[in-house]
């Protein structure tokens, strides 16, 4: 019996070596699909436009994936995204924008710290703790601003650093996204910390008994998740030059969907940042592609929903057969 199972698992284990294989294949297929169907799709202007929205979603997705691999969720990222924009605009209108950005990121990090502390101290699922945080931040923001939009008229340092055009439609945010993908991919696969992240999400009792400080790992990852959402939000508001308290609603699910499409397990312990990168690209490509073939915007949701279900099913199958 054992021999048989082993033989079946042989080709699969080779695919397993390349966990991003599935998402890259899906991305390529959909990319080619839209390139053929929509004549204006495969143009530098459009592709860099996709890159722009993907960078913002993708930076958030990196943080989400990193945290999910450690076995926890963060639903508050979408609120942190809008909240960061608000803080940045408010501060940036009166002080140096770089300082405003730093304070914004510190504030975002603090929310992550709070998420982690609540989750671990109160021993409630992070799904619930961060759902509460998501609503709490959004509610406070709505109440304080009365839903009004505020415009940014501070200096150009941060806008230039984050998102102003650098030619052919490319923006610095694209570079940040790629750089952060490489950085977090390295941390996850090539450092001791990365190994602890996998173990914490894979089986926390074992991780702990092997000397891993699992609470610290989780706390750090909560902070990273919030930080990345804060950065994504800062990029977005610098692109629009206005902040609105309803920015980013529903984006947490898009980010989780991107991570899952990219091969991250909802149950933790497995996933890749490169996969999350392509997951975010898949989402952005579908969104823009559907618009370009003239489909009503609602189709985006339906499409993404179907793909999430397929991706999660494939993840489970791989896990049953191989792991």
């Amino acid at each position: 019996m054992r021999r048989v199972t082993r033989n079946i698992s042989l080709p699969l284990s080779q695919i397993r070596r390349w966990p991003e294989f599935g998402v890259i294949l899906a991305f390529s297929t959909i990319f080619i699909f839209f390139s053929v169907l929509a004549p204006m799709f495969f143009t530098i202007r459009n592709l860099t436009g996709i890159f722009t929205i993907v960078s913002e979603l993708g930076i958030m997705t990196i943080g989400i994936a990193f945290l999910m691999i450690a076995g926890e969720f963060d639903l508050s990222v979408s609120s942190v995204y809008a909240f960061a924009g608000f803080i940045f605009v408010t501060l940036g209108n009166s002080i140096n924008s770089l300082l405003a950005l730093i304070i914004t990121l510190v504030a975002a990090g603090c929310i992550g710290f709070l998420n982690g502390t609540i989750t671990m101290r109160a021993r409630i699922p992070s799904f619930i703790a961060t759902l509460g945080m998501m609503m709490f931040i959004r509610g406070i923001m709505m109440a304080i601003t009365g839903g009004r939009t505020v415009a940014y008229h501070g200096d150009l340092i941060v806008p230039t650093l984050l998102t102003r055009f650098i030619g052919h439609g490319f923006r610095p945010s694209h570079v940040w996204f790629v750089a952060l993908t490489v950085l977090f991919s390295l941390i996850l696969t090539r450092t001791r910390y990365g190994n602890w992240v996998f173990a914490t999400g894979g089986r926390k009792e074992v991780a702990r008994s092997m000397g891993v400080n699992i609470n610290r790992v989780k706390l750090i990852n909560f902070i990273i998740s919030s930080l990345m959402a804060g950065l994504a939000g800062s990029i977005a508001i610098n692109r629009f030059s206005v902040a609105n308290p309803s920015f980013g609603i529903g984006m947490e699910l898009e980010a989780i969907a991107s991570a899952v499409i990219g091969g991250t397990f909802l149950t933790g312990g497995h996933g890749t940042i490169i996969g999350a990168f392509f997951g975010a690209f898949l989402m952005g490509t579908i969104r823009i592609g559907l618009i370009m073939v003239g489909a009503p915007a609602y189709w985006y949701m339906a499409f993404v929903g179907a793909i999430v279900i397929i991706a999660a099913t494939i993840n489970i199958k791989l896990r049953r057969l191989e792991m």
């Binding site: 996998f198 173990a199 894979g202 089986r203 009792e205 074992v206 991780a207 000397g211 312990g269 896990r319």
Partner: peptide, 21 residues
């Protein structure tokens, strides 16, 4: 430990050095 000391969804070598990489 009774509940085993390995993380199933990690590779052998990553498990082997867990905490002492």
């Amino acid at each position: 430990h009774q509940e085993l000391s390995l993380v199933n969804i990690m590779t052998i070598s990553r498990n082997f050095f867990l905490g002492r990489e």
